[in-house]
Design a protein around this nucleic acid. Structure first.
Lengths: 183, 183
DNA sequence: GTCTATAACCAGATAGAC
DNA sequence: GTCTATCTGGTTATAGAC
């Protein structure tokens, strides 16, 4: 238990919020998970309210997402997409929070900004470059990038929700996506 | 107020569950929305509990989703995908319930079945037929169908969450998706 | 900083009159 | 079938001792 109490509260709150939604989690449970006596109210020495800890949790996850941004990197599209899928797993908590508590989440504008940046925009530029170089067929790069991003996010979420791939496994999915873009 | 009370309760509960999540809705509010006196408990003459009404709401939405299944239809891929997107809007409530309350929802197995059927499987067969006929390039039809479905669902959800398209509008998105599959 | 204890409140659910 | 009234239990948040 090397982490200080504040950090343990944040970690516990994140895990509980992700698995059961913000409304479904009691402060008492957060205390218990953080090694404090449940119902003691010790939580309130660190955060003013449940909304306050949610704010801090989301802010921290956004910072992590920014830090973990997948660098475009090299290699073929299939391996790039596989890496992107791994990147989504890395920010899975943030995505889970977002889809679960959507409009009630704090930092919404910043969230949208970060997700849009890490996603579509970066890819659109790289795709455009590949198209200009004649490596892949020329198409509406921004739209293709959006398709790729949403397909990857969709695959990630489907797997997360149903505890497994929804019909097709990761390798086939990534290969098909790359094949679509490349030819 | 021609609908009977039970139906009004179902309608109200659905709307509230979708917008604020099951845990975020009080039975009192459902009563109020259904034209009953809030806090009266009249709700309980129609449903045994909140879980009971959730069960009925989900079952009804599943039936609607099945009834509203988009028939494959004719025309080019772009218009087919545009129709699929409209179909997603039609079952938007069910999708919203699913992403919001995910694993805590009743009828999970049936839900997965219905979504998988309406989605990937149907499309995989049609794609395979088009590939066999040489209309579109031959690829892993199941995986391509999965990509298409998840991209469409992703676009639908992104629009719903952020109140607008996440970067690229519907027409460009659909056109790009069709272009990827066709060539 | 954490504890015990508790206040204040709100939600789910029931009883019984009309 | 809806109402008023109420029970019960859980949740947020605070007070004050240690």
């Amino acid at each position: 238990m090397a982490r200080d109490t504040r950090t343990r509260i944040l970690d516990t709150a994140l895990a509980l919020f992700v698995s059961r939604g913000v409304e479904g989690v009691a402060v008492t449970e957060i205390e218990q998970g953080a090694g404090l006596s449940p119902g003691s109210g010790s939580f309130y020495r660190h955060f003013r309210s449940k909304a306050d800890v949610l704010d801090a949790v989301v802010a921290r996850e956004i910072d992590r997402a920014v830090a973990a941004r997948v660098v475009p990197g090299e290699g073929d599209l299939a391996s790039e997409y596989a890496r992107a899928l791994a990147g989504l797993d890395a920010i899975g908590s943030l995505l889970a929070l977002l889809v679960r508590d959507g409009s009630r989440l704090p930092h919404r504008a910043r969230l949208r900004e970060v997700l849009a940046e890490t996603g579509t925009h970066l890819d659109a530029e790289r795709l455009q470059a590949r198209m200009d170089a004649g490596e892949i067929p020329a198409r509406d790069a921004e739209a293709v990038a959006s398709v790729v991003q949403l397909a990857l996010v969709g695959h990630h979420l489907a797997r997360r929700f149903f505890g497994g791939p929804l019909g097709v496994d990761e390798a086939r999915f990534v290969a098909a996506l790359a094949s679509l873009v490349e030819r």
